[in-house]
């Protein structure tokens, strides 16, 4: 069943594109600024999903050396038995950076709301035009 195996491998890729489009729609099509931020979060996590999916393998375990392999002086590592830890570690950095971006954006939203009293984009542009 090579066809089914190939199809199973594509689920994550299709979902990553779908999630990315949902996030992109929220960022461009919605007028509420909090909604735009929610869309940005979904967009970020879709990209993280794509990169982590690159490291996944069938019939592989988490990247920690099994104790049974360590009987001799050096552990006999079989790379096909472990998922690839490099994309996962890179995406850890991306998650932390994403939370920092979200925090700064939310602080900016609070300042905008204090000054203009709204978070809707069209009303906001009108009030900016009126008050300068």
């Amino acid at each position: 069943m090579a066809g089914l195996a190939d199809l199973i491998g594509q689920f994550n890729n299709v979902t990553y594109v779908v999630l990315m489009m949902i996030g992109f729609y929220a960022m461009t099509g919605k007028r509420n600024l909090v909604k735009k931020l929610v869309g940005m979060n979904i967009f970020q996590w879709s990209i993280i999903l794509f990169v982590v999916s690159l490291s996944a393998k069938r019939d592989a375990t988490i990247p920690i050396v099994l104790e049974g392999n360590n009987a001799g002086a050096l552990p006999a590592l079989e790379a096909a038995q472990y998922v690839n830890p490099l994309p996962q570690v890179l995406m850890l950095t991306a998650i932390v950076v994403g939370v920092a971006i979200t925090g700064v954006a939310l602080a900016l939203l609070l300042r905008i709301y204090k000054r203009y009293g709204t978070l809707e984009e069209d009303q906001l542009l009108e009030r900016i035009r009126l008050t300068g």
Binding site: V52, L92, V96, V99
Partner: peptide, 19 residues
């Protein structure tokens, strides 16, 4: 489920919690 446990607990603490 994909075997990325370090990403998983960072996501649970930071993504689902702090955000």
């Amino acid at each position: 489920e994909m075997g990325a446990v370090d990403v998983a607990f960072t996501e649970a603490a930071v993504g689902a919690g702090v955000t």
